[in-house]
């Protein structure tokens, strides 16, 4: 990220547009905000159902931290054309990584560097956006990060409602209240064989701590469950 104009646009985008949107259109309510890190390095780990997830998580942190917040995102998706690439890199500030082991070496090396610079990294361990309020199998990358940086807190979060307001494959946003529950930090030092299981358990416990979303069944639902 560089350039004073892009930096100013990023500041305006998050502190005016995103914060106003999160407040009015989503009415985001946050449980245990006090568990969020005051400063980096830290890794925020959340379920992923919607493009809104990144904006929601970035709006949770104080404006002063904005310059140090970097979401990890799929390079093959977000850098596919020039304008999207500019928006993703300069405004959102993503760390692009290659999915599916297409590249050479360690695909998470840019994330390692960001953590060494003391940045707050947003990481979606499911690897892609899944069905609302369901947790897809977690990818192992997050465990590697935690092991490499045993002193960095890994903070699990559950986002509820974003997959209803703007689900995958839909361009039309519909306002719904969204909730976020913040969990206790996990550390790589505790990374035994069951570390991934613990992370998954913590995420599901956060999900269960929120009031359940209610759906009528409907036929489209069954199609989605195939």
């Amino acid at each position: 990220m560089n350039g004073p104009i892009n930096r100013a646009l990023r500041w305006l985008f998050f502190n005016v547009l995103v914060r106003g949107f999160v407040l009015l259109a989503l009415g985001l309510s946050v449980r245990h905000r006090e568990r969020l890190p005051g400063q980096g390095p830290a890794i925020l780990v959340a379920n992923h159902n919607s493009h809104l997830d990144t904006l929601i998580l970035m709006s949770l942190l104080p404006p002063a931290q904005l310059a140090r917040v970097r979401p990890v995102a799929a390079g093959d998706y977000f850098l596919r054309n020039r304008w999207l690439a500019w928006f993703a890199r300069e405004i959102i500030g993503i760390i692009p990584i290659q999915r599916g082991g297409a590249g050479h070496g360690n695909p998470l090396a840019p994330v390692d560097q960001a953590l060494e610079r003391g940045e707050i990294v947003i990481f979606f361990p499911e690897g892609t956006r899944g069905e609302p309020e369901q947790l897809a199998p977690l990818k192992k990358g997050i465990r590697h990060l935690a092991l490499h940086h045993p002193e960095v807190p890994v903070i699990p979060l559950w986002i509820q409602g974003a997959g209803r307001a703007l689900p995958r494959g839909e361009a039309l946003f519909v306002p719904f209240f969204c909730d976020v529950a913040v969990g206790h930090a996990l550390y790589g030092q505790q990374a035994g064989a069951d570390w991934m299981e613990r992370l998954k358990r913590d995420l599901l416990a956060l999900r269960d701590s929120l009031p359940p979303l209610q759906w009528y069944q409907g036929r489209v639902d069954e199609d989605a469950d195939r």
């Binding site: 519909v174 719904f176 209610q214």
Partner: peptide
């Protein structure tokens, strides 16, 4: 946000 809705009815 409180009541049950159908996924089909977003629009």
């Amino acid at each position: 946000s409180l009541i049950p809705t159908r996924r089909a009815d977003r629009r």
